Amino acid sequence: MQVLKTLALPVLAASLIMTGCANRKPVTDGSNIGTTNLTPGTSVSTDGLSEDAAINAQNLAGASAKGVTEENKAFLAKRVVHFGYDSSELSNVDYQTLQAHAQFLRANANSKIALTGHTDERGTREYNMALGERRAKAVQSYLITSGVNANQLEAVSYGKESPINLGHGEAAWKENRRVELNYEAVPPLLK
Rank of each mutant, 00 (worst) to 15 (best):
residue 19 T to C: 09
residue 66 K to Q: 09
residue 54 A to Y: 07
residue 33 I to F: 02
residue 59 N to C: 11
residue 53 A to D: 15
residue 47 D to L: 05
residue 69 T to Y: 04
residue 31 S to Y: 06
residue 66 K to C: 04
residue 16 L to G: 11
residue 16 L to V: 14
residue 21 C to K: 00
residue 31 S to G: 11
residue 36 T to V: 15
residue 33 I to M: 03
residue 64 S to Q: 00
residue 22 A to K: 01
residue 37 N to A: 10
residue 40 P to Y: 08
residue 61 A to M: 12
residue 64 S to G: 10
residue 13 A to S: 07
residue 41 G to K: 05
residue 63 A to Q: 06
residue 57 A to T: 15
residue 19 T to R: 01
residue 63 A to H: 08
residue 18 M to S: 04
residue 17 I to E: 01
residue 51 E to I: 15
residue 40 P to R: 02
residue 50 S to A: 11
residue 67 G to I: 04
residue 59 N to E: 13
residue 13 A to H: 00
residue 10 P to L: 07
residue 25 K to V: 15
residue 45 S to K: 10
residue 31 S to H: 06
residue 40 P to G: 13
residue 27 V to R: 01
residue 71 E to R: 08
residue 48 G to Y: 11
residue 21 C to A: 07
residue 60 L to M: 12
residue 33 I to Q: 10
residue 71 E to I: 04
residue 42 T to I: 01
residue 42 T to P: 00
residue 59 N to S: 11
residue 55 I to K: 07
residue 56 N to C: 02
residue 19 T to G: 05
residue 25 K to R: 12
residue 54 A to H: 06
residue 49 L to C: 04
residue 33 I to H: 04
residue 38 L to R: 05
residue 18 M to E: 07
residue 60 L to Y: 14
residue 54 A to D: 08
residue 60 L to I: 11
residue 32 N to W: 06
residue 14 A to S: 14
residue 34 G to F: 05
residue 57 A to R: 14
residue 26 P to W: 06
residue 56 N to Y: 12
residue 61 A to C: 12
residue 18 M to K: 08
residue 41 G to E: 05
residue 11 V to W: 05
residue 16 L to C: 11
residue 64 S to T: 09
residue 27 V to P: 03
residue 29 D to W: 02
residue 52 D to C: 00
residue 22 A to C: 00
residue 56 N to A: 15
residue 56 N to S: 14
residue 57 A to W: 07
residue 19 T to M: 07
residue 68 V to T: 01
residue 15 S to E: 04
residue 12 L to H: 02
residue 17 I to L: 15
residue 62 G to A: 08
residue 27 V to M: 13
residue 42 T to M: 01
residue 17 I to F: 14
residue 60 L to Q: 14
residue 12 L to A: 14
residue 53 A to H: 15
residue 67 G to F: 03
residue 17 I to S: 12
residue 71 E to T: 09
residue 58 Q to V: 01
residue 10 P to N: 12
residue 37 N to S: 04
residue 46 T to V: 15
residue 29 D to P: 00
residue 72 N to L: 09
